[in-house]
Simulated scan of single mutants.
Amino acid sequence: MKIDKGLLGGSTLLLLLSLLAESDRYGYEIIKELEHRSDSTFQFKEGTLYPVLHKLENNGYVRSYMAKGDAGKERKYYQITNQGKKQLVEEKKQWQIYSMAVNKVIGGDAHAFA
Score class of each variant (00 low, 15 high):
residue 58 N to H: 15
residue 34 L to C: 14
residue 87 Q to T: 05
residue 57 E to F: 11
residue 33 E to K: 10
residue 89 V to M: 10
residue 13 L to V: 13
residue 105 V to T: 01
residue 107 G to Q: 04
residue 23 S to T: 09
residue 107 G to S: 07
residue 27 G to D: 06
residue 88 L to A: 02
residue 83 Q to F: 13
residue 101 A to K: 02
residue 68 K to R: 14
residue 39 D to T: 05
residue 63 R to H: 12
residue 65 Y to N: 04
residue 75 R to D: 04
residue 9 G to W: 07
residue 30 I to K: 02
residue 37 R to M: 04
residue 69 G to K: 09
residue 57 E to I: 06
residue 65 Y to D: 02
residue 93 K to S: 09
residue 26 Y to I: 08
residue 30 I to F: 01
residue 77 Y to E: 09
residue 60 G to C: 14
residue 27 G to R: 04
residue 114 A to G: 13
residue 75 R to V: 11
residue 52 V to M: 08
residue 8 L to F: 00
residue 100 M to R: 09
residue 70 D to Y: 02
residue 92 K to L: 14
residue 10 G to P: 01
residue 14 L to K: 10
residue 106 I to M: 06
residue 35 E to R: 04
residue 84 G to R: 00
residue 45 K to C: 00
residue 72 G to L: 05
residue 91 E to T: 07
residue 99 S to K: 14
residue 61 Y to C: 05
residue 78 Y to N: 05
residue 83 Q to C: 14
residue 102 V to Y: 08
residue 28 Y to G: 06
residue 30 I to V: 07
residue 71 A to D: 15
residue 101 A to D: 06
residue 47 G to K: 03
residue 88 L to T: 01
residue 11 S to I: 13
residue 66 M to D: 12
residue 28 Y to K: 13
residue 101 A to C: 06
residue 18 S to R: 06
residue 26 Y to F: 15
residue 21 A to Q: 08
residue 78 Y to S: 01
residue 68 K to V: 00
residue 20 L to G: 11
residue 16 L to V: 03
residue 86 K to W: 03
residue 100 M to L: 11
residue 31 I to H: 00
residue 44 F to E: 01
residue 40 S to L: 00
residue 2 K to H: 11
residue 81 T to P: 06
residue 14 L to I: 10
residue 87 Q to E: 11
residue 45 K to Y: 06
residue 109 D to Q: 14
residue 101 A to I: 08
residue 46 E to L: 11
residue 4 D to A: 09
residue 21 A to I: 02
residue 19 L to E: 09
residue 89 V to H: 09
residue 94 Q to C: 06
residue 98 Y to G: 08
residue 89 V to G: 01
residue 62 V to Q: 13
residue 85 K to G: 14
residue 32 K to P: 03
residue 55 K to A: 14
residue 83 Q to V: 15
residue 38 S to Y: 07
residue 40 S to T: 02
residue 16 L to R: 03
residue 18 S to V: 00
residue 24 D to Q: 01
residue 1 M to W: 06
residue 100 M to W: 09
residue 13 L to F: 08
residue 60 G to D: 07
residue 55 K to D: 08
residue 53 L to W: 09
residue 44 F to D: 00
residue 67 A to W: 01
residue 36 H to D: 12
residue 76 K to Y: 06
residue 22 E to D: 11
residue 106 I to Q: 00
residue 40 S to K: 12
residue 80 I to W: 07
